[in-house]
Write a protein that binds this DNA or RNA. Structure first.
Length: 265
DNA sequence: ATGGTAGCGTAGCTA
């Protein structure tokens, strides 16, 4: 079973690229963030044709939006809200006879890394606190789950192109990294791609649009993550980050797909 | 220190 996550930055605009990814990489479960479309206008037919007969979507006008597209039936789906906002950032689906899958889009947090001066950064930190409290409060720690998506934080030194130069840049500040690690601890989450790529090696999933040439200097960040519970670790076979998708034509997302393969129990 | 690009939706917000 292959599970993938991709911040697609408009599901409607990026449909041809999604079709290419699905054709070439054959995910069984595809989690999307920043779909940027209300549910009524979500291109369900295109996903049906790609073989995703089971779909959980949560979208709003212009911003955010998450979706789980699946070839495997769901036993249950739901939407979760944090910080008192219904802003379409968290959707989950429990597979029939399989793990629970949480697709999350953590707020980006604006530009100023000070929660007193920047409400968007305060929202990001509060969202992380709420999510950690949710996972700390669940009493079924042993049940297999994964949480994946655009977390908008690159926690490790080699999750960014320059640790020193990004210490004051939202996405890599010590404050939000600390909150992300607290969230990780709250449910014993395992960082799946780092099981295969040592922390000493650079690993990115995002390259800014705001560069003339995204390949110059390889100034990336690992903002997109796949976390799994220890109960799923024995089934984890491989992970990958499809860097080539950053250069796909026409009009790529600034994020690339991250995937993980699991053996079926 | 600033601005750079992208998407939605058609101005300005968010990233």
């Amino acid at each position: 079973m292959r599970v993938a996550t991709w911040n697609i930055n408009s599901v409607r605009l990026r449909l041809p690229l999604i079709e290419r990814f699905v054709r070439e990489n054959k995910p069984d479960i595809l989690c999307l963030q920043e779909t940027k479309v209300v549910n009524d206008a979500f291109p369900e037919g295109a996903f049906e044709q790609m073989g995703f007969a089971h779909r959980a979507i949560s979208g709003m006008k212009s911003y955010n939006g998450v979706a789980i597209l699946s070839k495997i039936p769901f036993a249950e789906t739901g939407v979760l809200n944090w910080q008192g906002k219904e802003d379409c950032r968290h959707i989950f689906a429990k597979l029939a006879g399989g793990p629970e899958i949480h697709c999350v889009y953590i707020p980006a947090g604006g530009d100023v890394p000070d929660p007193a001066a920047n409400p968007k950064f305060a929202h990001k930190l509060g969202f992380l606190d709420d999510l950690a409290a949710y996972w700390r409060g669940r009493d079924d720690k042993a049940a297999p789950k994964m949480m994946l998506g655009d977390f908008n934080i690159a926690p490790l030194e080699n999750d960014v192109w320059s640790h020193k130069q990004l210490l004051d840049v939202v996405s890599h500040t010590p404050l939000e990294v600390e909150k992300l690690l607290a969230l990780q601890t709250a449910h014993d989450w395992i960082d799946a791609p780092r099981r295969f790529v040592p922390e000493s090696k650079k690993l990115y999933s995002w390259w800014s649009y705001r560069a003339r040439d995204w390949t110059v200097g390889d100034r990336g960040r690992r903002l997109d993550h796949i976390w799994i519970t220890p109960s799923l670790l024995p089934q984890l076979q491989a992970t990958g980050i499809l860097k080539a998708a950053r250069g796909w034509d026409p009009k790529p997302s600034d994020h690339v797909p991250v995937w993980a393969d699991f053996s079926r129990p």
